[in-house]
Write a protein that binds this DNA or RNA. Structure first.
Lengths: 195, 195
DNA sequence: TATTTTATTGAGTGATCATTCAATAACTTT
DNA sequence: AAAGTTATTGAATGATCACTCAATAAAATA
């Protein structure tokens, strides 16, 4: 393999910097000039690496949802009970929602911003969100089989419920919510899932 | 009062047309040219009437949240029990979320799109969302006093919970959700509120 | 060292954006 | 009917946008 003139920049760092910007300001409000400053990439390099602004967002979204899946997996390894995993995950969402300048979930933000405007990116975001939902469904399936979770609703239904709560928290994070209120809400919700 | 050259257009119709556009495409993706076509207003008239694009969105948001409050009030008049009001409201949210090209809640969409980009409009959106949340808190307060709702959590906490669910449904509406799953989720949620 | 290959550079491009304003038209008042 | 008032009109403006590309620089190979 011929390799003349290797890349000076680190792809990971570039994606992280871009992610921070897209998360703070959203897709449209983030100009390519902003991205050039944050990533310290000249326009030509940026377009060489990611095609265009859409391609950069796509790389960011993949990175973001990969991290989410990795986090779920790490919780699954750490805790033996499925309920514990759900509880810890929700509590982290609550903590994030109550931070001072909480920005919610990048995937949710992107989904709502890009609806009916960038169909291709919208599809991409939906797929990433579905990946997370499916991972939860798999986890819950185990919990139902082991008898830990009730079998009143199937795993798919329970996963839908949990995603609705998580995404609700993501929106709520923009409203300076009361932490105790959210905790009580999530406790009650989790109670409806266990057997 | 001197009135030479009265307005040719109807302010309500203009706001409705603008609302439809903002709802479909979001604030940034809706160009002033789009708004001119939809409202059949020339740029000068539009700016005379609303100041600028932000002013038009503000008028739309006020109109939107007024309608939401009116809807809650109409349910309150129609049903004697608070639980019935909450149930009907949530069921309408579910129905909307499962429509073919569901667009979620305009206020939620706007909140997430404008975060960290248009602080003034963001504040406006938060206020409109809070108006709705407060109206629910007042309604729930009655339900607690009458003993219909449990007093385990105060009215403010219960209102936070319900808004989290409603906003979660608003996001979920973009994901072609399963109606039965949402209904079961909301039934279980309402059960945690009653005494 | 000379050649080849490829990433980097950054000024430049055309399109689109929100917004303005002087001219005009329509309605009321006198 | 004339004068006065104000909404309407639409071409024009300047700014910003995402994006391009020919020139250049740096590393690997011969």
């Amino acid at each position: 393999m011929i390799m003349a003139r290797p890349q000076k920049y680190q792809r990971e760092k570039v994606i992280d910097a871009a992610q921070a910007l897209f998360w703070q300001k959203g897709y449209q409000a983030t100009s390519v000039v902003d991205l050039q400053s944050a990533t310290e990439l000249k326009p030509g390099s940026l377009y060489k690496a990611f095609g265009n602004k859409d391609g950069l967002l796509q790389a960011v979204l993949e990175n973001y949802s990969n991290n989410t899946l990795l986090f779920i997996d790490s919780l699954t390894e750490k805790h033996s009970s499925v309920m514990a995993v759900l509880e810890v995950f929700l509590n982290r969402q609550i903590d994030r929602s109550c931070e001072k300048d909480a920005e919610g979930c990048l995937l949710v933000n992107s989904l709502l911003e890009l609806q009916g405007y960038k169909p291709q990116l919208e599809t991409e975001v939906k797929q990433q969100l579905l990946r997370v939902q499916v991972r939860f469904a798999q986890l819950i399936e185990q919990g139902i089989k082991s008898g830990e979770l009730s079998d009143k609703m199937d795993a798919s239904g329970k996963a839908t419920a949990i995603m609705t709560v998580v995404w609700g928290l993501s929106v709520m994070s923009r409203m300076s919510p009361n932490k105790t209120h959210l905790q009580t809400f999530c406790d009650d919700f989790l109670a409806t899932m266990s057997s």
